[in-house]
Amino acid sequence: MATKASRAAARMMISPAVILLFAWMIVPLGMTLYFSVLRYNLLTPGANPFVGWENYYWFLTDPSFSAAMVNTLVLVGGVLLITVIGGILFALLLDRPMFGQGVIRIMVIAPFFVMPTVSALVWKNMFMNPVNGIFGRIATGLGFQPVDFFGQIPLASIIIIVAWQWLPFATLILLTALQSLDQEQLEAAEMDGANWTSRFWYIMLPHLARAITVVILIQTIFLLSVFAEILVTTNGGPGTASTTVTYLVYVSSLLQYDVGIGSAGGVVAVILANIVAIFLMRMIGKNLDA
């Protein structure tokens, strides 16, 4: 039983973590909010007058913003679609009896451990380069015009790279969930004459539903912040063809030195992420009670 003394001790032990995280969250976020209502450019020193909603107005009505919103949705949606469907297929495959399962699993999961800058540069040069890249060579070899990935389909190219990094994550989690499925239930269904399709739809998929939701929510949080892959491949271009909200905020604040507009964009990004976070938190919270 917890005594009064141990409760006091417990509070003391938890306080450094709470104080640090609280400061980390409140101080910069408060500053972002404050900067977002000032006219504040690092290139024009002097007073930073209060301008109210002006920065938000500029950020939200900038044509780059609507492009960035669409790009962000396409990027997140595209990667989710590929990784969830691919992840289910991979998990089903890897769950079957085979030789050398461990080695195969390691090969599938490995891309997740590759740092974003490496995978982006390797794909950009060794695979998607229209002249020397492997895809370009295959196209030329078959008599087609090679695709200029980052010139013609920049966003799709980035989606491919990011999906390659996150497919292992989805596979790993869905495989873990699949392995916790009661085998006897499946066998009983099989004996009752259920074919593979109905076993998949009525037993496996419902069992995976929770894990799929977790994959979607967690990936969304990370995918909204994709940055390095854009920075080292397209720099958001051509034009704004591959600029996301995260990248747009980076451009406004660290490249154009406009602290005010960059901060307004930061606040917008926080609001967007929070909409997703609320759903995720609710799911994890439910799990804590169980």
């Binding site: 969250m25 995260t246 930061g266």
Partner: peptide, 9 residues
């Protein structure tokens, strides 16, 4: 859950 760009500046 806070996106890093929210506090980058």
């Amino acid at each position: 859950m806070m996106p890093p760009v929210g506090v980058l500046v």
